[in-house]
Simulated assay, not measured.
Amino acid sequence: MHTMWKGTISFGLVNIPVKMHAATENKDVKLRQLHKECQSPIKYEKSCPVCDRPIENDEIVKAYEYAKNKFVVLDEEDLKALQKEQEDKAVEIVDFVQLEEIDPIYFEKSYYLSPNEGGAKAYGLLRNALKDTGKIGIAKMIIRSKGQLAVIRVYENTLVVETIHYPDEVRDVKDVPNVPDEVETEKKELDTAKMLIDQLTTEFDATKYKDEYRTALLDLIEQKKNNDESTATATEKPAPEAATNLMDALQASLDRAKQEKPKPKQPKKKTKTTAKKKKTGS
């Protein structure tokens, strides 16, 4: 399993060297966009609308837009220094709480933690302590240049980091439009709804839930591929024709250069008056 990050987790005076690994993966079926006429993949190029030309990566800088078309440009060296300063800090557990106290709306992404060299004993200590107390740790850390609030808990026999949103990242529920306040419900309707919930209540088993759309889409792709339906081969861009004769190419370039070169200005002809004045002066 690929290691995404190495560091230490600390609580009190205990430091645990750990490695972090992605606990989940995105299995969405990615579809490419093709040009309908020639079945070639569409390219997306970075360009400047003012200079009207493509832009290379080394020409791009990062900036924060503090007002409409007003930017503060951030130097890459400053950003790297700030990131390094934060990443060098240990992941510090600042509080221990009950998992049930955190609403699921705060949870973001999961990562597995494994002990790094020399960290097995301290890793086991934290794991056992969390198991016995039924608590989870609240920690602060840096992941991919972003400050994260995180939960450290035990999943089966492994420590897991769950990144969670900061409170100001969760929108105020009062801003949701058209939510009714109290709604009168008929007792018979409510009792029937409760009975239905009871009938559908079971123990959670994650393996019983499948992504039916993804499965159907992959089946459709496989069917079309096997039947040669709607298959497409991208048209390669034709290479420029090579010059059959080097001398012909050089001559053509010279002729074009002569055509594009501005003609030298001709000197003005002397008028009879000017010539007469010079003769008189002599």
Score class of each variant (00 low, 15 high):
231 T>K: 14
141 M>N: 03
113 L>I: 00
166 Y>V: 07
197 I>K: 15
153 R>D: 05
121 K>I: 10
213 Y>V: 05
243 A>P: 06
233 T>W: 15
162 E>L: 08
237 K>F: 12
123 Y>A: 01
170 V>M: 13
204 F>K: 15
157 N>C: 03
177 P>D: 09
173 V>P: 12
112 Y>T: 00
149 L>Q: 05
164 I>D: 02
217 L>W: 06
247 M>T: 07
204 F>H: 15
195 M>K: 15
192 T>H: 11
128 N>A: 14
220 L>H: 11
123 Y>H: 00
241 E>S: 04
185 T>G: 07
233 T>K: 15
192 T>R: 14
135 K>S: 09
228 D>V: 01
209 Y>R: 08
160 V>I: 12
248 D>Q: 08
149 L>K: 05
245 N>K: 10
215 T>M: 12
165 H>A: 11
181 D>L: 13
233 T>P: 08
126 L>Q: 04
247 M>F: 12
227 N>W: 04
207 T>F: 10
163 T>A: 02
174 K>R: 15
166 Y>D: 10
157 N>A: 12
157 N>Y: 05
158 T>F: 02
212 E>F: 09
136 I>Y: 04
125 L>W: 03
166 Y>C: 01
146 K>L: 07
119 G>E: 01
157 N>E: 13
117 E>M: 10
159 L>W: 02
231 T>D: 13
217 L>K: 11
190 L>H: 11
241 E>C: 01
151 V>M: 13
191 D>K: 03
211 D>T: 10
206 A>Q: 10
180 P>K: 09
160 V>N: 11
167 P>Y: 14
227 N>D: 09
191 D>Q: 02
118 G>E: 00
172 D>Q: 14
250 L>Y: 07
116 N>K: 10
149 L>I: 09
229 E>H: 07
250 L>Q: 07
139 A>E: 00
113 L>C: 01
180 P>M: 04
235 T>R: 15
205 D>H: 08
235 T>M: 13
228 D>R: 13
188 K>L: 09
225 K>Q: 10
161 V>E: 00
200 L>R: 11
232 A>V: 05
124 G>E: 08
147 G>I: 15
227 N>A: 14
169 E>T: 05
219 D>S: 13
190 L>S: 12
121 K>W: 06
151 V>L: 13
196 L>N: 10
187 K>L: 12
188 K>C: 03
197 I>H: 10
191 D>F: 03
129 A>M: 14
166 Y>W: 14
126 L>I: 06
240 P>F: 06
189 E>G: 04
218 L>K: 07
187 K>F: 09
190 L>N: 06
186 E>D: 15
158 T>A: 02
124 G>S: 11
122 A>W: 02
206 A>E: 06
236 E>H: 08
120 A>K: 03
207 T>A: 12
243 A>Q: 02
202 T>I: 14
229 E>G: 04
183 V>K: 05
130 L>T: 00
246 L>F: 14
201 T>W: 04
215 T>N: 08
249 A>Q: 07
150 A>S: 11
186 E>T: 06
210 K>T: 04
197 I>G: 11
194 K>C: 07
247 M>Q: 13
151 V>W: 03
186 E>I: 09
187 K>R: 09
219 D>C: 07
245 N>Q: 12
203 E>V: 07
247 M>P: 10
222 E>V: 13
